[in-house]
């Protein structure tokens, strides 16, 4: 991979400036709301593909997201602990959960199908625990963090959408930086070798279990963080919007559509899925219930059959091929 040229650096700087300046120039609440949604979910999808690109297909990320959202909110409501402490605590919980589930999987060579199904169990557990402890969490009716009367840094609650936009933008940028860090590390080569052939990788000195655990924990922490911020922004969560199998599948879907192997792929996936859902919702109103998922389902199948590298991945491949020829 070539180093950063002056031209591409300038491109990134201009892009960053435009994104930062956007809410000050154009501050309609609704488009801003959509942008914030896209940024938060992009971060979540990026955190899924950070491990998904190495063939570690997890269906448990709905679980990590649920832990991030609910632990933070529960600590705030029941113990009055500020999200500034609550979010780190929820991240620790998600990390421990990831270790508990992933360690035996990797130690005992549970890969592919098996890994997906074991992590599916994790989503299921988190969803059922949240629903079952309805005295604390409000069960399937949902849960709202206690509102402060005014904006509060202590409670991490802001009514102003511009503030949230900037927070979400920073989070998204950090997600991309983490992706880049992983992409340029030795771990990436180790994990690519592992995804091709575990035995061969182990034979040349890759510690398979440790490498996989590292990436899984990073991914779980990021996902839990996305959950916590989602909860702080929306101030309302239900077990079905932040945990469970549908959320896990939603992450997989967006990442696959955008492209799992390129940094901005999950972001492209988030843009497409959220804009599609919103367009349908505005165009058809309540009649649109179900249509967005219907289209997602068909698209997911089509993409996996015809375009497994996703929209962005395939486009980049095509451009590279053209440049080489031309």
């Amino acid at each position: 991979m070539e180093g950063p040229t002056t031209r591409s650096m300038a491109g990134w700087a201009v892009g960053a400036l435009v994104l930062i300046a956007l809410p000050f120039v154009w501050s309609d609440p609704y488009p801003l709301h959509i942008m914030i949604q896209i940024l938060i979910w992009s971060f979540a999808y990026t955190s899924w593909s950070i491990m998904g690109r190495f063939g570690l297909v997890s269906l448990g990320h709905g679980g990590f997201m649920g832990v991030g959202a609910y632990v933070t909110a529960l600590l705030w409501n029941h113990l009055g602990i500020t999200p500034w402490i609550g979010i780190p605590v929820s991240l620790v919980c998600a990390g421990v959960l990831a270790l508990v589930v992933a360690y035996p999987c990797f130690r005992f060579r549970i890969t592919g199908h098996y890994f997906a199904l074991v992590t599916l169990a994790l989503s299921g557990i988190v969803l059922q625990v949240i629903t079952a402890s309805r005295d604390l969490t409000g069960g399937s009716l949902g849960f709202s963090p206690k509102m402060m009367p005014a904006d509060s840094i202590f409670a991490l609650q802001f009514r102003d959408k511009t503030t949230w936009y900037l927070i979400a933008l920073a989070m998204w940028a950090v997600g991309l930086l983490i992706w880049r860090k992983v992409d340029r590390s030795m771990d990436r080569y180790a994990l690519e070798a592992v995804s091709e052939d575990e035995d061969a990788a182990a034979a040349v000195g890759v510690n398979v279990t440790v490498e996989k655990l590292k990436i899984t924990v990073i991914s779980a922490l990021m996902t839990a963080f996305a959950g916590a911020l989602y909860c702080q922004y929306q101030l309302f969560i239900t077990p079905d919007t932040v945990s469970g199998i549908s959320v896990s599948l939603q992450m997989v879907f967006a990442a696959v559509v955008g492209g799992v192997y390129v940094a901005l792929g999950p972001t492209v996936g988030a843009v497409i899925t959220i804009l599609l859902a919103e367009t349908l919702r505005i165009g058809f109103g309540t009649k649109a219930v179900g249509w967005d998922n219907l289209i997602y389902g068909v698209l997911l199948v089509l993409f996996i059959v015809f375009l497994p590298k996703g929209i962005l991945g395939s486009t980049l491949d095509w451009l590279r091929l053209r440049r080489r020829r031309g």
């Binding site: 297909v57 592919g112 219907l294 389902g297 997911l300 199948v301």
Partner: peptide
């Protein structure tokens, strides 16, 4: 069409069918 693809792709494709069937029933 996916028989020779990695098994995990088949699993994800049936995940798409899951979305499809659920929302078809909803619609």
């Amino acid at each position: 069409p996916l028989l020779s693809a990695p098994p995990i792709n088949q699993l994800l494709a049936t995940g798409g069918v899951l979305f499809f069937l659920q929302s078809l029933a909803t619609v």
